[in-house]
Simulated scan of single mutants.
Amino acid sequence: MKRKKHTSADDEAQIDMTPMLDIVFIMLIFFIVTTSFVKEKGLDVNRPEDNQSNTDKPSSSLSIRIDENGTITMGGREVDIRRVVANTQTYLAENNTDTAAIQAHEDTEHGTVVEVMNQVKVAGIEKVSVLVKGS
Rank of each mutant, 00 (worst) to 15 (best):
V128G: 01
P58R: 07
N54H: 13
L92I: 06
K133N: 03
V33G: 14
S129L: 04
K2F: 14
T90F: 03
T112K: 02
K41L: 11
R47E: 15
K5T: 11
V132A: 09
Q89E: 04
V79F: 04
G75R: 03
D11E: 09
T35E: 07
H105Y: 12
K4N: 09
R77I: 06
E109L: 06
S36L: 12
N95T: 00
D80L: 06
N95H: 09
V120I: 08
G76H: 01
A86C: 06
D50Y: 14
I72C: 00
L62V: 00
M27A: 15
D98R: 14
N51V: 10
K39Y: 11
D11H: 09
T112A: 10
L131F: 14
D80F: 08
E12Y: 09
N87Q: 10
F31V: 12
K5G: 15
G111I: 01
T7W: 12
R65E: 04
V120F: 00
E78K: 04
D10M: 07
D50C: 04
Q119D: 01
K121Y: 08
R65L: 01
M17E: 06
T7K: 13
R82P: 08
S8F: 15
E40Q: 15
E12H: 13
I15F: 15
S53V: 02
V84E: 03
R3H: 09
N54W: 04
M1S: 09
I102G: 06
